[in-house]
Simulated scan of single mutants.
Amino acid sequence: MFGLPYNKFQKVIEIITLVLILCQIAYTAVSYPQLSSKIPTHFNLAGEVDGWGGKGTIIILVVATVALYILLTVSMFFPKMWNVPVKITDQNRAIVFKYVMNMILLDKVLIVICFFYMTYCSISSISMGWWFTPFFLISVLGVTFYYTIKLFFVK
């Protein structure tokens, strides 16, 4: 099967993700001419700036966001390549596909939110805050673990 239909929840998450990417691109494009020649390019685990680079490096965050979005979206079109912890049968196929698609879509929107925030912090030359790394890890891994555990209970 090539490509799976989205339910309403999945469509909403996909639209939110796309809008956030477009906002990140627009924000970067509008901010770029006013950027200092040197901007933060790296943050430590405490969210403090510990690396600087030229203003052109902000494009890397936008490209990384779009690349991750495309990679995760393409992976949704090839369900036969998914590695799930249960045997997929005709009886459980719909629920397994729903769970995996929800997981990918939610991880996608969380990644885009985090990369947009990193872009904002770099453009604004502010620290990300101590909470950013735990939030990023707990949210993305939490969604992944949640749906993986749900898959174990699919019959």
Rank of each mutant, 00 (worst) to 15 (best):
M1Q: 12
M1D: 13
F2K: 13
F2N: 12
P5E: 01
Y6M: 09
K8W: 12
K8F: 10
I13A: 02
I16C: 08
L18R: 09
V19E: 06
V19W: 05
I21D: 00
L22F: 12
L22H: 08
L22R: 08
C23G: 15
A26W: 09
A26T: 09
Y27I: 06
T28Y: 10
A29C: 13
A29Q: 10
V30F: 14
S31H: 04
Y32M: 11
Y32W: 09
P33I: 11
Q34K: 15
I39L: 10
P40W: 05
P40L: 12
T41W: 01
H42W: 11
F43V: 03
F43S: 04
L45E: 14
A46C: 15
G47C: 05
E48M: 10
W52C: 06
W52Q: 07
K55H: 03
K55S: 01
K55D: 00
G56V: 09
T57Q: 14
T57L: 15
T57N: 14
I58N: 14
I58P: 03
I60H: 14
L61V: 02
V62A: 10
V62M: 11
A64Q: 08
A67G: 15
I70L: 10
I70E: 09
L72R: 12
T73D: 12
M76R: 15
M76F: 12
F77C: 14
F78L: 09
M81C: 10
W82S: 03
N83V: 15
N83G: 13
P85T: 08
P85V: 09
V86I: 05
V86E: 03
I88S: 02
T89D: 02
Q91C: 03
Q91N: 06
A94S: 05
A94D: 02
I95C: 00
V96K: 00
Y99F: 08
M101G: 04
L105K: 08
L105C: 05
L105F: 04
L106F: 07
D107G: 13
K108F: 04
K108S: 11
V109R: 04
V109C: 06
L110P: 01
L110Q: 06
V112I: 10
I113C: 14
I113E: 07
C114N: 15
C114L: 13
C114S: 15
C114K: 14
F115S: 06
F115Y: 12
F116C: 11
F116A: 12
Y117A: 11
T119A: 15
Y120D: 10
C121I: 09
I123H: 06
I123N: 05
S124Y: 14
S125R: 10
S125V: 11
S125A: 15
G129C: 02
G129N: 07
G129D: 03
G129K: 04
G129P: 03
W131C: 12
F132P: 05
T133D: 08
F135R: 07
S139F: 08
V140E: 07
L141G: 13
V143L: 04
F145N: 08
F145R: 06
Y146W: 05
Y147D: 04
K150D: 01
K150Q: 07
K150T: 02
K150P: 02
K150V: 04
F152Q: 04
F153G: 09
F153A: 05
V154F: 00
